[in-house]
Design a protein around this nucleic acid. Structure first.
Length: 423
RNA sequence: GUGGGCGUAGCUCAGUUGGUUAGAGUCCCAGAUUGUGAUUCUGGUUGUCGUGGGUUCGAGUCCCAUCGUCCACCCCA
């Protein structure tokens, strides 16, 4: 065993038992995105490292220590994408999709972060995301949030709650950040080790500390909401009105801070208490400055990403795995003649009955062992083809899941009979 | 990067204060039933006890190291 090559730490295989749920969730997402008028964009898994440094932020953990970065053979620094927004904006600028235009895009796929794996967190994980460009009002913010709410509804997910906040414009946040640093610097001795480090990296994060010893200090700290610019305040108020109209429940969490540098104004998270420490299933926000920062013509933008492993895990804990789709039919063949006739038969059945799930026994075996495989396959009906059936030009039909007499059906109208029987 | 729990058959797990040849269930194969599954009965296959070292007459069991895994911190979807 020790000699066996194992999967890379934190990179999971998605096994046949789990893929039906993945397919269902992916289909629901595609359908919902499409219903709101969003188009799919497919992006490379790797980008130039600089793209992530310039968008996500130089001093974030993601860029500092979590990226899979390597040097290409021509000495270019590349990174596997740790999130989807940067690549999407890069592609949008590169192909002129964002120049004076409204654009509604979605993507889905694998992301990579070199973190220590734990529940709901993996080194290769999957996100489905939306990016909406060219719309500055809160109406598009509301649309995105309503769309996420609809996705939970379609999937039967009930244990998610919505938290929203406004970070204000970048300028307003810089000013607030100054006040906050000044305040915490005045109480440096009361800060724990993590928060002393955050003071220089991301002081807003201190507000979200889980350390109960710092609770009072945090409660007395300057509030972001008191330092918001008038424009952001109005934007936030209108968003709340829109959410009320759409019937989406929310709580305002003034300590909700997104980790990535590019966010401004609206931020939101859908969280659950059912997944241990990694409770954020979906998170997003507005990033009005990013396009210009990456060299495009300035344009407003907002997006979100859903962590698929977390969403799947939530659905699984609530509803379990969906039933797999077993074959309708399993064909048993005994003898060389029957094998040849069987191949001909299954191909004609596939022609006549599109959508038919039919497994033909391969690998020989006695009727007994073939029946065992038929049963294990989950098929509702076993078809028998042996020398006796060939001689009479019929196929034996045995029901594996119900009390029902075995039948003999003529080869000539087998397709028509099976259509009635099982489809 | 830091801390804690756990590594025994393909899977789920038991294994006594250290004591002979490491077990159960399940799965798989064969037979009971010469062309009939699932149920029942009988028989059979399956192991570097994660890996390396140490203590001991003797280690799955104790010690050290290491790797893997899970959970938590940090951070994030």
């Amino acid at each position: 065993m020790s000699q066996q090559i194992q999967a890379v730490r934190g990179m999971k295989d998605i096994l046949p038992q789990e893929t039906p749920l993945w397919q269902r969730v992916e289909q629901t997402l595609r359908d919902t995105f499409s219903a709101y008028g969003y188009s799919e964009i497919r992006l490379p898994l790797a980008e130039k490292t600089e793209l992530f440094q310039r968008s996500i932020g130089e001093v974030t953990d993601i860029v500092e220590k979590e990226m899979y970065t390597f040097e290409d053979l021509n000495h270019e620094r590349l990174s596997l994408r740790p999130e989807g927004t940067a690549g999407c904006v890069r592609a949008g600028i590169e192909h002129g999709l964002l120049h004076n235009q409204i654009q509604r895009l979605w993507y889905m796929g694998a992301m990579f972060r070199h973190e220590r794996p734990q529940k709901g967190r993996y080194r290769q994980f999957h996100q489905a995301g939306i990016e909406a460009f060219g719309m500055e009002g809160p109406d598009i913010d509301g649309e995105l949030i309503a769309m996420t709410a609809r996705i939970w509804k379609s999937l039967g997910v009930t244990s998610l709650v919505l938290q929203i906040n406004s970070l204000g414009t970048l300028a307003a946040r810089q000013i607030y950040r100054g006040h906050l640093v000044e305040y915490f610097n005045g109480h440096r001795e009361a800060l724990d080790e993590d928060s002393q480090r955050r003071l220089t990296t991301n002081p807003l994060r201190i507000l979200d500390s889980k350390n109960p010893d710092m609770r009072e200090l945090i409660l007395a700290a300057p509030q972001l909401s008191e330092h918001l610019d008038a424009e952001s305040l109005a934007h936030f108020e209108r968003l709340k009105t829109l959410l009320d109209s759409a019937g989406v429940l929310y709580t305002v969490n003034p300590r909700l801070v997104r980790g990535l540098d590019y966010y401004s104004k609206t931020v939101f998270e859908w969280v659950t208490d059912q997944l241990g420490a990694q409770g954020t299933v979906c998170a997003g926000g507005r990033y009005d400055g990013l396009i210009e920062q990456l060299g495009g013509k300035a344009a407003p933008a907002i997006g979100f990403a859903i962590g698929l492993e977390r969403l799947l895990s939530l659905i699984e804990s609530q509803a379990g795995l969906p039933a797999p789709q077993p074959p309708h039919l399993y064909l048993l063949v005994a003898g060389e003649h029957a094998e040849r006739a069987g191949v001909k038969l299954v191909e004609s059945l596939r022609d006549a009955l599109p959508g038919l799930r039919l497994v033909m026994n391969c690998g020989g075996g006695s009727f007994k062992s073939q029946f065992k495989r038929a049963d294990k396959s989950g098929a509702r009906v076993a078809l028998l083809l042996g020398d006796e059936e060939l001689a009479k030009n019929i196929v034996g039909v045995k029901f594996l899941r119900e009390e029902r007499a075995q039948q003999e059906i003529s080869m000539d109208n087998l397709a028509a009979s099976l259509r009635e029987l099982i489809l």
